[in-house]
Design a protein around this nucleic acid. Structure first.
Lengths: 107, 107
DNA sequence: ATATTAGTTCATACATTTGTGAACTATTAA
DNA sequence: TTAATAGTTCACAAATGTATGAACTAATAT
């Protein structure tokens, strides 16, 4: 494998952590708070095992960090860069939707 | 489905477009150029059918656009926001790697 | 000690994504 | 008209990712 291919793989791997609706919702939730597992679950809904696995993946990929305090695990975002990247991609989505809307209006 | 879930799904869907090494390489390549299919293929290598499918996906997700001129299809990035989001996520990766390196040095 | 709370881990089934090669289309050149 | 270039599309196999429920662990409360 070429040297540069390895970095693209690692880079894509971090980006993959953004590629799931539940994980996007978690980033949205945590963008300016630290929240414990149960609080996140209460908002997102679904099975705790599923949420736990997604949070674990995000933590492994380095976009979340955990602080264990007593019984509770508090999750937070490692860097504002993640929030900003996420926000930019949301803008890309919104911009796309606006374009489609304009095309529709032209018909 | 709750209203807000739909937007997370669409948002995640756009983010997914960043989650593949070949697609990251393409964004890297196109960050300040427009390039035609064959030129991209020459750099990335692999099968043309594979590249074509990845470029098509990126175009559908609205992160690339195509300009057909004669025989050639010129691809470019729709918005600098994509490039910036991608750059931020690369920084997140680099920051992670630095943290791991520091931990290693402590041993 | 026992129960409760707060999660994690695991196995498995299911769904989605990806890579491959062959067949196809469209444009230009000879 | 025939061939070459520049891709796209398709079908299928293989790999990856995701959801689910049950079993597990660790900390606190009774």
């Amino acid at each position: 494998m070429h040297e540069n291919k390895k970095i693209f793989e690692l880079h894509a791997d971090v980006c993959k952590a953004l590629g799931h609706p539940l994980r996007i919702e978690v980033i949205d939730l945590l963008q300016n708070n630290e929240l414990c597992f149960t609080d996140i679950l209460e908002v997102t809904g679904g099975l705790k095992s599923n949420l736990s696995q997604h949070l674990s993946l995000m933590t492994k990929k380095g976009i979340l960090k955990v602080r264990r305090e007593g019984q509770c695990n508090y999750f937070s975002i490692t860097s504002p860069k993640v929030v900003e990247a996420c926000r930019l991609m949301r803008e890309v989505l919104i911009d796309n939707m606006k374009k489609h809307q304009k095309l529709l209006k032209m018909i």
